[in-house]
Amino acid sequence: MLKAYIETFQKYKYLLENLIMRDIKVKYRRSVLGVAWSLLNPLLMMFILSAVFSRVFRYEIENFPLYLIIGQILFSFFNESTSSAIFSIVEASSLIKKVYIPKYIFPLEKVLFGFVNLIFSIPAVVVMMLFYRVPFNLSMLTIFLPLLTLLLFAIGFSLIISALCVFFRDLKHLYSVLITAWMYLTPIIYPMSALEGSWIWYVARINPLTWYVESFRNALIYGTMPDLLSCWVCIGYGVVFTLVGLLSFKKLQDKFILYV
């Protein structure tokens, strides 16, 4: 059973590659700066946000722009990939009606495309780290843990919402509201300590993205090895969402054709 799934995936791996390449080509074709936009975009956003919020906020965050840009690129990866994945199956309806293709390819492709963009924008973080002369530290190598488990979380989450969106198209609009709320509940521009004493703190604590952003920062800015708890939480959210996503997707996928 599992072997058959892996074989099908092997067969359609080339399609996955092609679809990602297509998205990359379409995104950067006819733009003079090309891939450099993935680098410039977060840097420009960071300048604006840090200029404004370093005046608005009272709390002192060391290297605030660096703090900001990390939260920002991780969140915008999650935002872009899930927001485009949610409608990916509906968009591919003309194909789904004509050819047999494993349908998880479509949301998976959107998330992987978002991930490629995230990788492209990591040099922006490196630039800021050099600017602030953050000393190199072995614990920086542990960013792979939050990076890969965040990818898993995004894949699992996208599988669920893209499948539901086939049946309820207006989820797409609902999600754009939800993702904005989600952004404010993630410590991107403020520190977690700012929420202490309020019930909001607990909401932000349960929020998976909080854990990924913090683990990433701990490794890159503060040079600390990840503690056991955040390792398990990151892995836990990633694995559980991937499993739930795969199972619910599998259960719903045969009905897609009747609704797309």
């Binding site: 399609l15 679809l19 050819v99």
Partner: peptide, 10 residues
């Protein structure tokens, strides 16, 4: 190439 891969070719 895209269309070929949709049909499942390598």
């Amino acid at each position: 190439y895209l269309n070929g891969s949709i049909l499942g070719y390598s």
